[in-house]
Amino acid sequence: MSRTAFDRVKIARDPKRPTGLDYISGIFTGFFELHGDRRYADDPAIAGGLAYLNGRPVTIIAIEKGHTTKERTRRSFGAPKPEGYRKALRLMKQAEKFHRPVICFIDTSGANCGFGAEERGQGQAIAENLMDMMTLNTPVISILIGEGGSGGALALAVADRVWMLENAIYSVISPEGCASILWKDPQKADIAAENLKITASDALTLSVIERMIKEDDLGQPSFYAGIRELLTAELAVLEKNDHLLEDRYERFRRIGKGI
């Protein structure tokens, strides 16, 4: 049975799906969390810190939705605020300083939508990440593990490699939002999902991502071990690349170039 795009939207949003912190404990060892953006606050929607990947130090940044209702509320359902993106950028610059690669796990319906987020410059925070990640002089790999909602996801995905879980989605707008704007009917979200081309295989076809990760053994030790090996091998390739930043620029530059 092939799944429709909207089937995958539902799977991607399933609260029982592994979240950012599950990936961190499954793949890495010795995770030490670092908090705060040094400007305003600590955003629980993003967990970041240091850990070992197969014995080598890395910086990890993960959007965390939480599992229980209480936890999900505390973490704003994985919708980061400006301080979350600023914390992420702080940790990335720290990684650059200490020559550590950065690995991001993305799972958000979108950047936080609220008065405080606007007041503190949500747009500016995302824009700054997009700019500064483009020239961050250390390898960056981003993995979309659930929802990849618009600019809120892209703000952690200006990377050398972007991978997606088989049932993850990556979209410029939520299917419901798209349907209500275009057809004044959020019930047509399934049609919007189909049109928006948001699945991992769509993103692969559009050359927006490099790899789709199977999830037959999602959440099992073998699943995390598989990602650990993929990351280790890919980092070895990226670290040998003398044109890392030129290639990263070109990775995005070519999209829409041949109009």
Partner: peptide, 21 residues
């Protein structure tokens, strides 16, 4: 971003930001 070009529109945010940088 223009919805009708989906992910390709989203990627323009990164592309233009790279050029500005």
């Amino acid at each position: 971003a223009r919805m009708q070009e989906g992910l390709l529109s989203l990627m323009q945010m990164a592309k233009t930001s790279g050029a500005v940088k």
